[in-house]
Design a protein around this nucleic acid. Structure first.
Lengths: 178, 178
DNA sequence: TCCTATCATGTAATTAATTACATGTTTTAG
DNA sequence: CTAAAACATGTAATTAATTACATGATAGGA
């Protein structure tokens, strides 16, 4: 993919809640937000530098222990402005790149022997995912208070669960069809 | 995004059914396959050249009218082989880049005034999409025969419809919640 | 006959994103 | 005390993908 650069907004959104280092930001993609967005540190560090040049963020140097230098990034007013402008702007949806769907497209013949094993493998994968997401939801949103304080996050996780459930159902339906 | 290069397999898959020019292949992404995969001619032409060097495809020159030179590409045995190897290989799913979901993630407060207009805009979009997909399905798969001959394609379209329906339902649920 | 849409094929410049390379510090568990 | 895991920050090389640049032919309708 070229351009769009929505990662910029992700970083601003993460910095909106609290000051963080590039390392902290990179870690966010391993857990919660990683469910639907990804980035590695080698993309994040240079982007932070550019964003600082554009005055969307700033940083203060923090020394840990004897020598370790950390950069605590924070969002600026300008950063907040463009973040909220983005939030209010119309969203567009990239088409999903689901490799299984792509493969399926090329199976012309309903009787193809390839079909069944493909579906079963995929089903296993999505069922695991579904379970994992359900566990995650229970852990993160055990109380109504937690839901209210991270409302968007809870909606997004609920959506991911719905999506996986739908996928799973569709796969089951397919197995019946063939 | 960098690498994966599944476009290679898409082109092979398209050439599997019939000989085509780069132009024809590029057009495929405007219609059916474009629902879930994209590519433009400036990516396709160089890739075809590379694929020919790798002996996955070949071409014959066709002259139309007085001077127009077309290149009719066809798949080779080697191309068929790696295509079917790919079909049988395990699939992985890139995470979806849904900008609306991303924005939602950053709405912490259930009472945020941003929420409602965001959802309504999105709902309109997905309902249009759903209608459009339903029309497409009726047009393409009006008879059982047509379904049987393009089985994978029909499953994929059905999946896209399910997905949109699920998305729509989820948006409706959200509106009730807030 | 002329004009426009579609057919047809490329290259260049730029950006996004992944993988690999590179280095050093601090904390924690055994 | 020591080793490993986690913290912390960068750069380089490569590939994927988009947008823009560039050119020309053919078919069909007005």
């Amino acid at each position: 993919m070229a351009q769009k650069n929505r990662l910029k907004y992700v970083l601003l959104g993460l910095l909106k809640t609290k000051k963080q280092t590039g390392y902290d930001l990179a870690k966010s993609f391993d857990s919660d937000i990683g469910e639907f967005w990804n980035a590695n540190h080698s993309q994040i560090y240079p982007l932070l530098k550019r964003m600082e040049e554009d005055k969307l963020i700033g940083h203060e140097d923090v020394t840990v222990g004897q020598k370790l230098q950390k950069k605590q990034y924070f969002i600026t007013n300008k950063g907040q402005k463009i973040f909220y402008a983005w939030l209010k702007s119309p969203s567009d949806l990239d088409n999903t790149h689901d490799e299984f769907i792509l493969k399926l497209f090329f199976i012309d013949d309903a009787q193809s022997p390839l079909l069944k094993p493909m579906i079963i493998t995929q089903q296993k994968y999505h069922e695991e995912k579904l379970q994992q997401l359900n566990t995650q939801f229970k852990q993160k949103f055990s109380t109504q208070k937690k839901i209210d304080q991270n409302f968007g996050h809870s909606l997004v996780l609920r959506h991911a669960i719905d999506r996986e459930q739908g996928y799973s159902n569709w796969l089951t339906e397919m197995l019946k069809l063939i």
